[in-house]
């Protein structure tokens, strides 16, 4: 294999993982912007989506139905969690709430361990066929599903924020919570909406990636952390930043793993996180808003 086709291969697989990181990062950014919380349980939403889907497929549900049901289930679970664990601690400081989400993440993982055990589950790809060859690189159909789903979800998210009234209200809440309240926009309702929406994004990410990576009870931990790195890379408050951060992280990781050693794959992500936090805490793609006082 020539170097060029090898590089293309790394970029393609990087974009596949990067798309997943982008979706997870988007969840971090939406929740952080609306509530000020960094939700470390975001990765568990991904795991739950994949696990519910595996279970539903296991009992004989067709793939499309399993996808829809799993998304709804994860949204309900997260809605209950927001209601029970986050809202009841509304008066606590953001740091306390962040620690609550770490606790939630551990708890969800523990429950998943009890329910689904430690064995990895395999999920069949959504469509048969492939792999396809592009310029010396190969790509499996499921990767195309991942990239396509990511693109559609990102477009939907951006559409929601740019063109729908609810999206605008959510942004108003992100920009200026105080003024939003004065207009009658309820922060607690927006917080619930942000959590449930991020849950749906995470769950879908988990389902499309499942056929590529296997499904395990603890898959959310690493995906959540990577998504966090991507969000930080993008500045933690910008939605386009999260997307670019996710894709960039996926590609860098894949290139690093391919060109250096696959053992460094996770290390590279966290070195990037440390570098960003040391050198450019606002994020590489972080944009500073205009504000006149």
């Amino acid at each position: 294999m020539s170097l060029a086709s090898e590089l293309l291969q790394y970029v393609l697989s990087g974009l596949t993982m990067g798309g997943i990181y982008a979706l997870v990062a988007l969840g971090f950014v939406i929740i952080h912007n609306v509530t000020g919380i960094i939700n470390f349980a975001q990765g568990e939403f991904v795991m739950l989506g994949a696990m519910f889907m595996v279970t539903l497929i296991g009992v004989g549900a067709p793939t499309p139905l399993a996808i829809i049901l799993s998304v709804i289930l994860v949204m309900i679970v997260v809605g209950i969690i927001e209601f029970g664990a986050i809202r009841s601690a509304k008066k606590a400081s953001p740091v306390t709430l962040v620690i609550i989400t770490i606790g939630l993440s551990t708890a969800i993982r523990g429950i998943a361990l009890l329910v689904w055990g430690t064995n990895p589950y395999k999920l069949a790809p959504f469509t048969k066929g492939g792999p396809y060859h592009i310029g010396g690189a190969t790509i499996v159909p499921q990767s195309l599903w991942v990239i396509g789903t990511t693109a559609v979800l990102l477009a939907l998210t951006l559409f929601m924020f740019e063109y729908t009234y609810w999206g605008k209200a959510l942004r108003a809440c992100m920009v200026n919570k105080f003024a939003a309240r004065l207009m009658g926009i309820s922060p607690s309702r927006m917080s619930l909406f942000a959590f449930v929406f991020s849950a749906a994004l995470g769950a879908l990410a988990g389902m499309v990636i499942a056929p590529i990576t296997y499904v395990t009870y603890d898959m959310g931990l690493m995906l959540g952390l990577k998504g966090f790195v991507a969000a930080v890379l993008g500045g933690l408050s910008s939605t386009p930043g999260a997307v670019i951060g996710g894709l960039a992280l996926g590609v860098i990781e894949s290139l690093g793993a391919g060109l250096l050693s696959s053992g460094y794959k996770d290390g590279i992500s966290f070195i990037i996180l440390l570098l960003v936090l040391f050198l450019k805490p606002g994020g590489i793609f972080g944009t500073s808003g205009t504000k006149r006082v």
Binding site: V175, N176, F178, L182, G289, K291
Partner: peptide, 13 residues
């Protein structure tokens, strides 16, 4: 309705 001190418009909208 309160029009708050320092205006508090949604500046990125």
């Amino acid at each position: 309705i309160l029009v708050p001190e320092r205006r508090e418009v949604f500046d990125s909208l």
